[in-house]
């Protein structure tokens, strides 16, 4: 059930990401909803689950946009792993934990996407990536206070229920 909800949220996040630029009309930068999900999920489930979930969420994203399949899968896999590793022993109720995690994850994701993309033959300009990336990181961090609470309650109740059963 938990994974099904994650898939649904991922799909909704991708749709939101695809319509966000037109709705906002700002710098063509969009919040990376799937990344938020990867980080939040990794914080609750640890590095291995975080990496696996990150991989599949990233892969769904790649398939959705249909280009450079595997790029986001790889980047989000790494982010999920690291976010899960960092948050393993940290007090998750503190709002600054997800904020810092999302900030670090967003920056790392951008760097990885840029480097791996170049390895795969993408020709992106560093200035563009930096400019758009700045907005993206900002968006992601700003959304944390609004999205982390609901996710916390959802994940806490579901995982607790799974553990009990």
């Amino acid at each position: 059930m938990y994974n099904l909800v994650l898939a649904a949220i991922t799909f909704a996040g991708l749709i939101l990401r695809s319509i966000f630029p037109r709705a906002l009309g700002l710098a063509w930068a969009t919040p990376d909803f799937p990344l938020l999900l990867v980080v939040f999920n990794a914080m609750f489930r640890g590095p291995v689950y975080g990496a696996v979930t990150g991989f599949f969420i990233g892969l769904t994203e790649d398939l959705f946009f249909g280009r450079f399949i595997g790029l986001n899968a790889l980047a989000k896999c790494v982010v999920g792993f690291l976010a899960g590793s960092l948050a393993k022993s940290i007090f998750k109720e503190n709002i600054w934990v997800p904020i810092i995690n999302v900030f670090a994850g967003s920056v790392l994701s951008l760097i990885l996407v840029f480097i791996i993309g170049h390895l795969a033959g993408a020709r992106w300009y560093l200035a563009n990536v930096f400019y758009q990336g700045l907005f993206e990181v900002l968006f992601n961090v700003c959304l944390v206070p609004f999205l982390y609470g609901p996710f916390f309650h959802f994940a806490d109740s579901r995982l607790h229920f799974q553990e009990e059963s």
Partner: peptide
Amino acid sequence: LLYLMQSTGWQQSDMVGAG
């Protein structure tokens, strides 16, 4: 994955089947 990325980059004229 790198191979997959390369083969699904902008060199391809259309989306990959699963997309």
